[in-house]
C-alpha cells in the first residue's frame, strides 16, 4: 500500500491561500465548473485561474472533480462540461478526474442541485456506456462518487453497493467514497453503513472525500461549510482499519470556496496537517 496522499479543494483566485496550501498538500482538487466562465452560452476556463494553476503545475499534483457533467441525465451529458475538461487536459497535467453519480440537468434545464439516480438496469447500462466513452476520450483514470440522496429513493433493482460494484466491474472505473455523504444517507434515509461497506468492493476506492455540512429542516445536508467532525474522522479510520481499501491513494478535505474565509485559512491548514498526521504519517505504508 502506498502512502495516502492528502489534498484539498481549490477554486482559484486566492493566491495567498494557495501559497499556504502548497507546502502541505500533495495535490489540489478543482472543479472545471468552478474555474469556468461563460459568454453567450459558450463556456471556457477563466484565463487568470488557468494561468494561476499552470504556475504551480510542477509543484503539486492536480485532480479534477466535476459537478456539471450530469452523467445520469437521460438526454445526454453536458457538452459544455466536456469542453471545459478538454481545455484543462490541454493545459495541465491531471492525475485523474471524477464526477458525481447523479444528474443535474433534464433536457438542458438546470435542477439547481444534483439528484441521485434510480439503480435500475436501464441506468446501469447508460452510465456504463458513458463511463466507457469518457475513459476512451481521456486516457487517465476516471472515478465516480456516491452522492447524498435528498429525495426519497425510487424503487431499484440493485442496492447502493451492488450498483457501484457493477459500474466499476463493467467499466474499470474507480470510486470516490465520500464518507460524510454516507453519514448523511444513514441519518436521512437509514442507510446501514456497515452493510453497505461489507457489500462494496472497497478495492474500487481510489479516493476518500471528507467534508462537513449542516442540518436543515431535520436533514443532514452536504453543503461543505466547515471542518471535518470527529465522527467523520472516526468513520474514516474505521473504514481504513476494517475494510483496508487496497487501492486508496488520496484523501481530500472538501470545502466550498464560499466558506474559506469563514472557516479561516489557518484553520484549513491545521485541518490538512491533522489529516496528514492521522492518515498519512500513520498509514500502513509509512509505518
Amino acid at each position: 500500500m502506498k502512502p495516502v496522499l492528502i489534498g484539498t479543494t481549490y477554486e482559484g483566485g486566492r493566491p495567498d491561500f494557495l501559497e499556504k496550501l502548497l507546502p502541505i498538500v500533495d495535490y489540489l482538487e478543482f472543479s472545471p465548473d468552478s474555474l469556468a466562465t461563460s459568454r453567450n452560452g459558450v463556456a471556457s476556463i477563466n484565463p487568470e485561474k488557468l494561468a494561476e494553476l499552470k504556475e504551480v503545475n510542477n509543484k503539486v499534483d492536480f485532480l479534477v472533480h466535476g459537478v456539471g457533467l450530469s452523467i445520469g441525465s437521460y438526454d445526454g451529458v453536458s457538452k459544455n462540461y466536456l469542453k471545459l475538461l478538454d481545455e484543462l487536459f490541454e493545459n495541465l497535467d491531471l492525475k485523474w478526474h471524477s464526477e458525481h453519480l447523479a444528474y443535474m440537468f433534464v433536457e438542458g434545464i438546470n435542477l439547481g442541485t444534483m439528484v441521485t439516480l434510480p439503480r435500475t438496469n436501464e441506468t446501469l447500462s447508460m452510465v456504463c456506456d458513458r463511463v466507457n466513452i469518457i475513459q476512451e476520450r481521456y486516457k487517465i483514470p476516471f472515478l465516480l462518487e456516491n452522492v447524498v440522496s435528498l429525495l426519497p429513493e425510487y424503487h431499484s433493482h440493485y442496492s447502493h453497493a451492488d450498483f457501484l460494484n457493477r459500474i466499476c466491474d463493467n467499466t474499470g472505473c474507480g470510486l470516490i467514497l465520500d464518507i460524510y455523504n454516507l453519514q448523511c444517507d444513514a441519518y436521512n434515509h437509514g442507510l446501514n453503513i456497515e452493510s453497505f461497506l461489507k457489500e462494496l468492493n472497497c478495492n474500487h476506492i481510489k479516493e476518500f472525500h471528507l467534508a462537513s455540512g449542516y442540518m436543515d429542516s431535520g436533514f443532514m445536508t452536504d453543503i461543505h461549510a466547515g471542518l471535518t467532525s470527529d465522527t467523520t474522522l472516526n468513520l474514516t479510520q474505521q473504514i481504513l482499519d476494517s475494510y483496508r481499501p487496497a487501492n486508496l491513494e488520496a484523501i481530500t478535505y472538501e470545502l466550498l470556496d464560499e466558506f474559506v474565509e469563514r472557516v479561516g485559512q489557518e484553520a484549513i491548514v491545521n485541518e490538512l496537517e491533522k489529516l496528514k498526521v492521522l492518515f498519512y504519517e500513520k498509514s500502513l505504508a509509512t509505518c
Binding site: D75, L111, Y154
Partner: peptide, 12 residues
C-alpha cells in the same frame, strides 16, 4: 420501473 426519461421529467 418507469423509463428514466419519464422519471427525470417528473422530478424536474
Amino acid at each position: 420501473h418507469l423509463p428514466l426519461a419519464d422519471l427525470q421529467q417528473k422530478i424536474l
